[in-house]
């Protein structure tokens, strides 16, 4: 049973990912749900076409994905220059269905404090639990959130070493449902790997999370990279599905933030300032 289709203009005026070109190439066509509407994606000249109730929907093919919008004039998609850098490998690491709102999934992607507890032995390890001070800004010109100077202790930080060390991260949130993180490459410490999450909001409390990477690495196989990312996401999924309320609360008094949550606080304020009212619990609701 489908809920009332989303009428929130903020959501309707954005582009949303619906399927990776990888998956579409294999399957030929794909049926899914976007903003409570059934959609069908078929291969076509220029890449793909999206249909809703057999009527065409605005379609964009970019960054390895098919994007759709129900808006009247959706703004161009955010810049993601690393996708076009010739020496990077682009790997689609999977798509995950999760019973949670897009906002909760993005916040989890921005969060470092859970590494030792949820991604134990991979992205973090007790007793090294401290989230050190970092910087967050909301860039007015680019309309995106940028968190810089983020550092977190990671066991086996480099391929060449068994020692743990602080790894540096930069997080971008250029779209209410999309985020890209940059982290020092274990292979070449002068470059940053880019890891993205593009969330497809199926409903207010149901998503498909599209994940992948643009990385400097010619040693690992695609399978290794996918297995790693699927392990990480598989650890996050049960946490996400046990968060209440499922929709992201925008009222500052709904939950208890700490300094480590600076980026999440900025994200909630940014969403509230946009007037978003779908997939979230607006302040004062």
């Amino acid at each position: 049973m489908m809920a009332q289709p989303c009428t929130d203009t903020v959501m309707l005026e954005h582009w949303h990912p619906v399927v990776s070109l990888d998956e579409l190439r294999g399957a030929g066509r794909c049926r899914t749900v976007l903003l409570d509407r059934p959609v069908e994606i078929v291969r076509a000249a220029g890449g793909a076409r999206v249909l809703c109730d057999s009527a065409p929907v605005q379609t964009l093919v970019q960054y390895g994905y098919v994007w759709a919008s129900f808006g009247t004039a959706p703004a161009p998609l955010f810049p993601f220059p690393e996708f076009d850098e010739a020496d990077r490998r682009f790997v689609v690491t999977g798509v995950f269905g999760v019973q949670v709102s897009a906002g909760r999934a993005i916040e989890n992607f921005l969060d470092m404090g859970h590494f030792p507890y949820v991604h134990t032995g991979i992205l973090g390890e007790e007793p090294h639990t401290e989230v050190k001070e970092y910087d967050v800004e909301i860039s007015q010109s680019r309309d995106e959130i940028l968190a810089t100077r983020c550092r977190f202790y990671q066991p086996k930080a480099a391929v060449s070493s068994d020692e743990g060390a602080d790894v540096e991260y930069i997080y971008r949130v250029p779209h209410p449902n999309c985020s890209v993180l940059y982290k020092s490459s274990p292979v070449d410490e002068t470059r940053l790997d880019a890891i993205y999450i593009f969330v497809q909001p199926m409903g207010q409390e149901k998503i498909r999370a599209h994940t992948g990477m643009c990385i400097i690495d010619d040693a690992s196989t695609d399978l290794d990279i996918r297995s790693f990312q699927q392990t990480i996401f598989g650890q996050d999924k049960p946490i996400l599905e046990n968060q209440y309320p499922r929709r992201l609360p925008l009222d500052p008094r709904a939950e208890t933030p700490i300094r480590a949550d600076k980026s999440a606080i900025a994200y909630r304020r940014w969403l509230a300032a946009k007037g978003l009212g779908w997939g979230v619990i607006p302040a004062g609701a």
Partner: peptide, 27 residues
Amino acid sequence: ENRCLHRGVRLSLGLNDGRELRCLYHG
């Protein structure tokens, strides 16, 4: 209440160490 005040994760998933309850998400 079955909800960590920090990020709303169910505390019934947490760890009971006999004296304190530890939230699964951020400890």
